[in-house]
Structures are given as C-alpha cells and as structure tokens.
Design a protein around this nucleic acid. Structure first.
Lengths: 240, 240
DNA sequence: ACCTGAACACCGTTCAAGT
DNA sequence: ACCTGAACACCGTTCAAGT
C-alpha cells in the first residue's frame, strides 16, 4: 500500500448493536461498497462494529467464509418466484427479463462486490455465477420448466443466461471502476499538461485517438436490453 | 488461513537468474498458475527467485503494480495483426474468430490468472477487459475497419465482443475452479456417506436432483463456438 | 455467553547500510 | 549497481483468560 493511500478509517465505535452473523456480513458489504475489498480487514471491520477483531470469529469462520457470506448476502436479495405471473400475459420471456433486471440491479447497487459474485468458485459443480445458490438455481429452472422448457432447454438456458449476465455486468461495473480509479489524487497537479492531454498517452494510435470518446460513452442500459432481447430470441429455439 | 492449508512452499533458492521486471512477472504468473493468487506474497515470490522480498522493489512498484504486470504479461501473448490475412478468403468473420480463440487459449492456459484480467480496473475509460491495452484495442479496431466496419460499428463490436469473451471465459474458468476446490482434502473420509451422497445437500430441490449431471456436464468448447457464431451473425447488422 | 489481551506467524514497504 | 537487515505498521487467527 502506497503511503498516499494509507487508510485511517477513523469511524469510531459506531453503534454496538448486538453482534450476529447477519450484522457482521451486512457491515462487511457496506464497508466494501465504501472502501473496496482491498481495504477490508477483520480488524477494521471489528472497529466499525465497536468490537475487537477476535470477537468476529464467534460468528464467522474466518475471512474467506466472511466473503462467501458477503456474496450470499447480496444475492439473497433476488426474488425468483417460479410460479407467480409477473404480468397478465406472462411467459418465460418476462420471467427471464425480470431475473436479468434484478441481477443487474444488484450489480449496480454493489459494483465493488459484484466481481466477487462473478469470480468466487461456486460451491458445487452444478452452480455457475452469478446465480450461485441451490435455491436460486432450483427456482430459476422451475420457472423455465413451468413455462414450457424441457430439461435440456432449461439447462442450456441457465448456462447461456449466466454467461450473458457475467459478461455484461462485469463490463459495466468495470467501466465504473475505470472512471473513478484514475482520480486517485485529483488535486495534485491540476493542469500542467497541454489541453489535449491524452494525445501523449495514445501516441501513434489514430483509431483510438479518433474513437476514444465513442469508446468511453456509456450506453450500457440500452446495450443490456438489446443483448438480452437477442438472447431471448436465441432461446426460442430451445423451448419445446 | 486455516491450519490445514498453511502453505510451506519449500522450493528453495531456485535458479538465481539475473533479476529483472520480466523475470519477476514471469515467475509471478507461474506462481499463480500453481498456487493461486491468494498465496502469492512478495516474500514467497522473492524466495522462489532466490532473493529477499525487498529486492523486488527495484524492479516492480509494489504488489498492485506487480499484478498489473501479470495481467499485461499474459495478454501480451495475443497476436492481433490487423492487416495480415488469416485465410485465403479472409474477412472480419475470420479475424474475430481468431482473436476469440486466442483469448480463450489464454484463459484456459492461465485459469487462475484470468479473473484478474477480467476484473482489474482498466487503466483508461476507453479500455474494457479482456482486451485491456492500448495496442490491443488499436489493432482490434484497425482489423475491423480494414475489413469493412465503419467507426460506430467497430466500437459497438468491441463492446459486444468484450462482453461475450468475459462472460464465456469467466464461466468456463469458474467451472474449472468448482471441480478442484471441493477436493481440498480428498483423502480425509473416503466414503462415510451413503451412495447418493448429494441427496442431503440438495434436499427438497427436485429439479436440481434430476438435472445436476446435465448441469455439471462440460460442453464449453461447442458452446463457445456456437455463441460466437451467434455473435458474428448479430454483428452482420453493424457492418456498413 | 460473550468479549478481549496477548501472542504467533505472517504481510507490504521503506531505507540506511553493506558488497 | 544491486542486494539485504532491521524496522515499522499492519495482517489473520488461536486461545487462555476475563466479565
């Protein structure tokens, strides 16, 4: 850790609600949202809860288990009810659209947690991120089967859908990081470079120079919807 | 770190080739391939190079910079030559297929490094994982423009392509992790559970019980090819 | 029952000192 | 020029001891 980013985390004995697995995990999520995963330590988390780090070990099984808890916590907000109709004219189309929108909501609410959801090893070989719990997948499959998919189709849809969500949402939160990360010390040397400051870095790369604004432009919502529609079209072939 | 997984890393003073940025990064990649990112420390990496940890700081700017170096190193193997024809009848179709295959090759060669490629914040807002360097993106865009894409089409293709690669490859390496992770202590209690050992964990989840083998089955190569073909079809609409 | 002090084996990083 | 010893401020984790 460089000296300039040494973290002091002065938030003193915060509240001192009764400790519990739930309370600890919730606070860990809040911490990562604010400071990022790299700054999360058992000691600092304890401090935020008004307790010494060692106390946390009564409720969580170490740091790795805590991170599993964090992933479970953010994904447990998902409501996948396989049998309730979402609209008058419900179908698997609406069902998948709803699940996709919910997962995207989580990713955007917790952009610094989502990479964890995307990259932690699933706990069983039949689970894939980002729908990584037994209940979530059971309900997801049931929702599709209930709406006309056969077994093979539902399995194929689970895979294609997982891959779609991972790709789009990771790209989206990664773009969020790219905008905020370079602003580490925004007040350092306000303007010592020429107006077109990026010309130097980009150098002899004419396409990048010409297209960098288009490349940075954010159309993630539309792209998400369009790609999702495309995926749904593809899945038409799988429904029995 | 639980006691059972305490790492001893007994590989003594390995070689003692002359230290350099390149040598250090290369060894770091090898280390992550073998032991995973969590076990990589400056001290252990120094040990592997026959040197004290402090010596590494002459050549790399700390651990975070080392990880950036690791990401650059594995992606620098990519050969994106925008103007050389890959086949007699070259076109953007073949060009994208080639790039996709190369990136997939990297992910499968370094499954424990790829999550880093996928999740580290890009160094500029016009870069997206997994094609995260200025040269890579410049060549990628040039390759498409050279084969008939206009500016907007090339930018849209870059995005769709990035998302596709991220999703598929992360899903694929994540599946690799799920198979190896539970086998932490494979000799502990060989068979004390009933034959259908998974029935307990899966509980009242009939779809999972019935489909778990299909869910675990690996068809990643075919799925990659098929989804890629689908993406290429979609991109037809973008070419001028 | 719940929390802590003290301790252990590790970290990343700096820097004056060695060769 | 290149490497190291010693030191500093941190880690995760255990466990006997306190209340």
């Amino acid at each position: 850790m460089r000296d300039s980013e040494k973290v002091v985390m002065t938030a003193g004995p915060h509240q001192r609600r009764p400790l519990s697995h739930e309370a600890i995990v919730t606070e860990a999520v809040a911490f990562i949202d604010e400071h990022g995963l790299a700054d999360l330590s058992m000691r600092r988390l304890g401090q935020r809860l008004g307790v010494e780090a060692m106390s946390l070990y009564r409720y969580v099984d170490g740091r790795e288990a805590l991170l599993d808890g964090v992933v479970n916590h953010v994904t447990s907000g998902l409501q996948i009810d396989p049998h309730r109709a979402l609209l008058p004219s419900d179908g698997w189309h609406a069902f998948l659209h709803d699940v996709a929108t919910q997962v995207r909501g989580i990713a955007l609410e917790h952009p610094r947690v989502f990479p964890l959801v995307a990259t932690r090893s699933p706990s069983a070989p039949w689970l894939r991120p980002p729908l990584r719990s037994l209940d979530l997948v059971e309900n997801f499959l049931e929702g599709l089967l209930h709406r006309g998919f056969d077994d093979a189709g539902a399995v194929a849809a689970y895979r294609a859908f997982s891959s779609f969500l991972l790709g789009h949402l990771l790209l989206e939160v990664s773009a969020l990081g790219a905008e905020t990360a370079p602003a580490e010390e925004p007040l350092a040397e306000p303007d010592h470079r020429p107006v077109d400051e990026t010309a130097d870095e980009l150098g002899e790369r004419p396409n990048l120079v010409r297209l960098r604004h288009q490349l940075s432009a954010d159309h993630s919502s539309q792209e998400f919807e369009e790609s999702l529609e495309n995926l749904l079209d593809r899945l038409e072939r799988l429904v029995a």
